[in-house]
Design a protein around this nucleic acid. Structure first.
Lengths: 193, 193
DNA sequence: GTTTACCCTTAATCTAGTTTAAGAAATCAG
DNA sequence: CTGATTTCTTAAACTAGATTAAGGGTAAAC
């Protein structure tokens, strides 16, 4: 009855039954396997994806082939390469499921159709992008807090539910350190705390 | 005659004479001295500022008192703590003029007034935020490109005009290295190139 | 339900970047 | 124009974090 997507978007500004129908008709459900990628670097990001269940990572690969996690998204969060989606230029990033997941996807053309037929979505998605902007800016700030240990503690604080759920390799990649060094940090914290 | 602000915003979507008037009435010109701060950490960011002339930096201060530049903004660019502006929560960041500057400022309440009276500004500012999002995401990606030298070369590429204009201390703070190490990098590049 | 692939930890060695210091060069305000 | 402040460079000693390697543990998949 209550569609997860209308429930989520309606929490910003209430939506009429009509508006909900327009929305639901353009959101396609999709099951994603663990390790499956829903965006490959080189492709244009064609969808905004809303996570109903599971967990994803947005990551880039550097010149030397190392992966770097930029962002995680779990239940009730959105994931997309916002840059590629809006410019329709190839993405430099990948989006991969870290767990078996279930998502709703809205295609770029459909979102722009919805923008004109449900004008309040313009406002809602402006707010969503603002929130994502704040998230990524906090990430830049967090990277400043000098030591890797400080950054790890900040990560624990910010994602208490994800820290038990994600493998250390993924957390290390997010923090910009090696898994080995994350092990060292954990040991040091244990010895003291 | 052609106001810098309407010229800039009109380049996204043309504005009527009436819309221009509404806009210009709510944009206050301001002269800013070198070193003067237009946002202090702890304050709420009350303005979007459009740079007509001069140059600004957005920066945070870490636990140990070190400053870290997140973003620069020169002519025809906007600067604000988007997070603080939209949530109306205290900012963790500062905005400081790196040169004697001239700007137009729009207050938060005025921008929201304009959103309702000039609806297309909703769309224009959504695009502006998208562009800022892409800029900061590229910054996160750039920080991945392994060595500090690579990051410096990427910086030169991305801001060819700013690299001659900014002191090395500011560039080093943006790259996340010490000015001393930036000197070393420059020397190494010279010895080879 | 077991085999295979992934994941975590520890430790030794190594390196990119920091710190400290100090003199030379450039820039700014009066 | 000039003194004062900021900025740039060099170099030596130091440290946070990477790399490599290797053994044991855990969870996924057939």
């Amino acid at each position: 009855m209550t569609h997860p997507l209308t429930l989520h978007l309606g929490s910003f500004i209430p939506l009429s039954a009509e508006e909900k129908t327009l929305l639901v008709d353009r959101a396609k459900v999709r099951q994603v396997k663990r390790r499956e990628k829903i965006l490959l670097a080189g492709e244009v990001c064609q969808h905004y994806s809303f996570v109903v269940e599971g967990c994803f990572r947005l990551f880039g690969v550097d010149d030397r082939g190392f992966e770097h996690n930029i962002q995680f998204a779990a239940e009730n969060d959105w994931i997309a390469d916002i840059g590629s989606f809006h410019t329709q230029k190839p993405s430099q990033l990948n989006i991969e499921a870290l767990e078996k997941s279930s998502i709703f996807q809205i295609k770029q053309q459909d979102l722009y159709y919805l923008y004109t037929h449900v004008p309040k979505l313009n406002l809602i998605f402006k707010v969503l992008i603002e929130l994502k902007y704040i998230e990524i800016q906090n990430r830049v700030l967090q990277n400043f807090s000098s030591t890797a240990e400080d950054r790890y503690l900040a990560f624990l604080d910010q994602y208490p539910n994800l820290s038990n759920r994600l493998p250390n390799t993924q957390i290390a990649s997010y923090l910009g350190i090696t898994p080995e060094f994350l092990s060292k940090i954990r040991k040091n914290i244990q010895l003291r705390g």
